[in-house]
């Protein structure tokens, strides 16, 4: 019984939030890794793309709500997600056309691409703050919990329990579906294979008659779509804050690099590794240990490795360790 109580606590405070946050990171890292695999540069604007997608979704949600549209128990934002994806993909298309295609034609150094992506980041950040303002927006109007802690306790009779938020269930499910679709696309379809071929060996892909412009545009569209999902899901689960997305670049890049940059499976695994370690390291284990240990050994302190304030530092420390010990990441990176 005590063991179950401890497990319920860990599920409530580490596993569920960890897998939710990990899914959001995974979707972001997938976009970063795809761009890296095909265009060979680290896209610093990716966080802002997530923010952009979420912003468009929020704007349409407001518009929809003003006409009385809602999605019952689910957040209204989900209805408008496809529109947001369309807009973000279009935005990515313009970025590629007006910014990156020039450097691609010139075969510029990856670092030039990186600087250009910072220009895009600046512009997008400004655009977002100009349109929606710098303050927080809460746009989750669905039912908050599928079941909450109290209901769980009543149902199981345990002292501790966990609640499942709607946003958590939506995030995890959506991520599983999206990743499955993406992997089937990359591994089974002709277009997906051409993307992988282009990423593996650009010259040979060209000789085989693959159209580079098509591949690159498609990559942007997919990355933009994933970014929108990541941004909206993050906003639904927590709250939409324009400035948080620059901070999220760090865990997202860490996830991509830890998994092996350019490797989609790595990006997903990296996302969960980063998210779960953040929570495992900053969780206060006192209550858990109280259940597991005999009464006499009950700990007095918080039993916390690191204060919650240093959540972001965890992803950074993991990043540095991976860069030193195994720079190619868990799954050898570079190509998709």
């Amino acid at each position: 019984m005590d063991f179950l109580n401890a497990l319920a606590l860990i599920t409530n405070y580490i596993l569920l939030p960890g897998f939710t946050y990990g899914s959001q990171l995974a979707l972001g890292a997938l976009g970063v890794t795809l761009i890296y695999a095909v265009l060979r540069f680290s896209n610093f604007a990716h966080g802002e793309l997530m923010s952009f997608g979420a912003m468009i979704c929020i704007l349409f949600t407001w518009l929809g709500q003003s006409y009385g549209i809602n999605f019952g128990v689910l957040p209204t934002a989900l209805i408008f997600l496809p529109i947001a994806i369309g807009f973000t993909a279009l935005y990515c298309f313009f970025i590629e056309k007006f910014v990156f295609s020039y450097y691609r034609r010139k075969k510029s150094d990856p670092i030039i691409f990186l600087i250009a992506s910072i220009g895009v980041m600046f512009f997008t950040a400004g655009l977002i703050r100009f349109v929606i303002g710098p303050s927080d927006q809460n746009f989750n109007d669905g039912v908050r919990f599928i079941f909450n802690v109290r209901e769980f306790k009543a149902f199981t009779g345990l002292e501790e329990g966990f609640g499942l938020k709607t946003s958590q269930a939506i995030t995890i499910l959506t991520t599983i579906i999206l990743c499955s679709i993406l992997f089937v696309f990359l591994n089974k379809t002709r277009t997906g294979k051409s993307m992988r071929a282009f990423s593996d060996n650009e010259d040979l892909a060209l000789l085989s008659g693959i159209d580079p412009n098509k591949v690159v545009l498609l990559t942007w569209v997919i990355a933009g779509g994933l970014a929108t999902f990541a941004g909206v899901l993050y906003g639904l689960d927590k709250i939409y804050k324009p400035f948080i997305f620059l901070q999220m670049l760090l865990p997202i890049f860490s996830a991509a690099i830890v998994g092996g940059v350019g490797n989609p499976i790595g990006a997903v695994v990296g996302g969960y590794v980063i998210a779960l370690s953040e929570l495992f390291v900053t969780f206060a284990y006192r209550k858990v240990l109280a259940y597991l240990l005999p009464e006499s050994m009950e700990p007095s302190g918080m039993m916390q490795f690191l204060s919650t304030d240093y959540k972001f530092a965890v992803s950074f420390i993991i990043l540095v360790i991976v860069l030193i010990v195994r720079p190619t990441g868990i799954f050898r990176g570079k190509t998709i």
Partner: peptide
């Protein structure tokens, strides 16, 4: 294409 299977190389 080293990261792809033999079959995929032929398909490309």
């Amino acid at each position: 294409f080293t990261s792809m299977t033999v079959m995929e190389n032929l398909e490309i």
